[in-house]
Measured scan of single mutants.
Amino acid sequence: MTEYKLVVVGAGGVGKSALTIQLIQNHFVDEYDPTIEDSYRKQVVIDGETCLLDILDTAGQEEYSAMRDQYMRTGEGFLCVFAINNTKSFEDIHHYREQIKRVKDSEDVPMVLVGNKCDLPSRTVDTKQAQDLARSYGIPFIETSAKTRQGVDDAFYTLVREIRKHKEKMSKDGKKKKKKSKTKCVIM
């Protein structure tokens, strides 16, 4: 069974824990209790493949930012979460993405942009803004509501699919490099 290491990042209060708990335990946590770091595991079937999701729910508070490099190193894919009623959390996505790329030393890291709290009427981040940002990053965008469960499975499952595509691409690139290195030079 394939294991996928997913990391949920975003500013404090955007609903990272609520999304994760909704996926794992099928219930909505409405009281806000700032996370330092929590880890969850769940076995699911995605596109006919049974897999184990190892999900790291991270601290959004700035005082825990020193811990970010460590979990970013171990993560295979990242859910970059903002709240649709919090423009600052949307603007912060850029910083999370840049930090992930720096730590992973790669421009090509599996990510999904997630606009959470889409059940709320007080939207300050337009869907088109988020779609445009995701398009500019070359990553999928999904709106979710941890409260109603809308888009929750889709967000995590899409990230797994992005990781699969990335692994497939990397193995193809690896095979191309191996083929090239088999060419021999004969000096007579």
Rank of each mutant, 00 (worst) to 15 (best):
T2N: 11
T2A: 11
T2R: 13
E3C: 10
E3W: 05
E3R: 12
K5W: 01
K5T: 12
L6P: 05
V7W: 09
V7E: 03
V8R: 01
V8A: 08
V8P: 04
V9I: 11
G10K: 04
A11T: 14
A11G: 12
A11F: 14
G13H: 15
G13Q: 11
G15W: 05
G15V: 03
K16D: 05
K16G: 03
S17F: 01
S17W: 00
S17V: 01
S17A: 00
A18M: 12
A18D: 02
A18S: 07
L19P: 01
T20Y: 00
T20P: 00
I21H: 02
Q22S: 11
Q22W: 04
L23W: 10
I24R: 05
I24H: 11
Q25L: 15
Q25M: 15
N26C: 13
N26T: 08
H27N: 14
H27W: 15
F28D: 00
F28K: 00
V29N: 02
V29P: 04
D30I: 04
E31W: 12
E31L: 04
D33L: 00
D33T: 00
D33M: 00
D33C: 00
D33S: 00
P34R: 00
T35L: 01
T35N: 00
T35K: 00
I36K: 00
I36N: 00
I36D: 00
I36G: 00
E37T: 07
S39A: 07
S39L: 02
S39M: 03
Y40V: 00
Y40Q: 00
K42S: 07
K42P: 03
Q43C: 06
Q43H: 08
V44N: 15
I46H: 08
I46P: 13
I46S: 12
G48A: 10
G48W: 06
G48R: 11
G48V: 10
E49H: 15
E49C: 09
E49N: 11
E49S: 12
C51F: 10
C51K: 14
C51M: 14
L52D: 13
L52R: 14
L53A: 12
L53S: 14
D54K: 14
D54L: 09
D54G: 13
I55L: 14
I55V: 06
I55A: 04
I55G: 00
L56Y: 03
L56S: 05
D57Y: 00
D57P: 00
A59I: 00
A59E: 00
A59G: 08
A59L: 00
G60T: 00
G60F: 00
Q61S: 14
Q61C: 10
E62V: 03
E62L: 03
E62A: 04
Y64W: 01
S65W: 09
S65E: 06
A66N: 14
M67A: 02
M67S: 03
R68M: 02
R68Q: 03
D69W: 08
D69R: 10
D69S: 12
D69P: 11
Q70D: 04
Y71R: 14
Y71N: 13
Y71L: 01
Y71G: 14
M72P: 12
M72T: 02
R73P: 10
R73F: 10
R73S: 08
R73M: 08
T74Y: 10
T74M: 05
T74G: 10
G75A: 08
G75S: 03
G75D: 02
G75H: 04
G75V: 03
E76H: 09
E76F: 10
E76R: 06
E76M: 11
F78R: 02
F78I: 03
F78M: 03
L79D: 01
L79S: 08
C80T: 04
C80Y: 04
C80W: 02
V81T: 10
F82E: 04
F82N: 03
F82W: 08
A83W: 02
A83P: 06
N86T: 06
N86P: 08
N86E: 12
S89F: 08
S89A: 07
F90T: 11
F90D: 14
F90R: 15
F90Y: 09
D92E: 10
H95G: 14
R97P: 03
R97C: 15
R97T: 13
R97F: 15
E98T: 03
Q99R: 08
I100L: 09
I100R: 02
K101F: 06
K101L: 07
R102A: 12
K104S: 13
D105L: 09
S106E: 13
S106K: 10
E107T: 11
E107P: 06
E107G: 10
E107D: 09
D108P: 04
V109F: 09
V109A: 08
V109S: 06
P110Q: 03
P110M: 02
P110V: 03
P110R: 03
P110L: 03
M111C: 05
V112G: 02
V112I: 05
V112H: 01
L113H: 01
L113I: 12
L113M: 14
V114F: 03
V114S: 02
V114I: 09
V114N: 02
G115V: 12
G115P: 08
G115S: 11
K117T: 14
K117Q: 12
K117N: 14
K117M: 15
C118D: 09
C118G: 08
D119E: 11
D119Y: 04
L120V: 12
L120I: 03
P121Q: 11
P121G: 11
P121V: 10
P121E: 13
S122R: 05
S122L: 07
R123C: 11
R123V: 10
T124I: 08
V125M: 10
D126L: 07
D126T: 07
D126S: 07
T127L: 06
Q129K: 13
A130H: 08
A130F: 11
Q131A: 09
D132Y: 05
D132V: 07
L133V: 11
L133A: 12
A134Y: 14
A134G: 13
R135D: 14
R135M: 08
R135G: 12
S136G: 08
Y137R: 12
Y137I: 09
G138T: 06
I139V: 06
I139S: 06
F141L: 15
F141C: 10
F141D: 03
I142V: 12
T144M: 04
R149Y: 11
R149L: 08
Q150A: 07
G151I: 08
G151R: 10
G151W: 12
V152E: 11
V152R: 12
D153S: 07
D153P: 07
D153W: 04
D153V: 07
D153L: 07
D154P: 09
A155W: 07
A155H: 14
A155R: 02
A155K: 02
A155P: 05
Y157E: 08
Y157S: 10
T158F: 05
L159S: 01
L159P: 01
L159I: 06
V160F: 09
E162K: 08
E162S: 09
E162M: 05
I163W: 04
R164T: 03
R164K: 03
R164Q: 10
R164C: 05
R164W: 04
K165M: 05
H166D: 10
K167F: 07
K167R: 10
K169Q: 13
K169T: 11
M170F: 10
M170G: 07
M170V: 09
M170I: 10
M170C: 07
K172Y: 09
G174I: 03
G174A: 04
K175I: 06
K175S: 07
K177R: 06
K177Q: 14
K177G: 11
K177D: 03
K180E: 06
S181A: 09
S181F: 08
K182W: 05
T183Y: 10
T183L: 07
K184H: 03
K184R: 03
K184Q: 07
K184W: 05
K184S: 05
C185D: 12
C185R: 11
C185A: 13
C185H: 03
C185S: 13
V186E: 13
I187W: 15
M188F: 08
M188W: 08
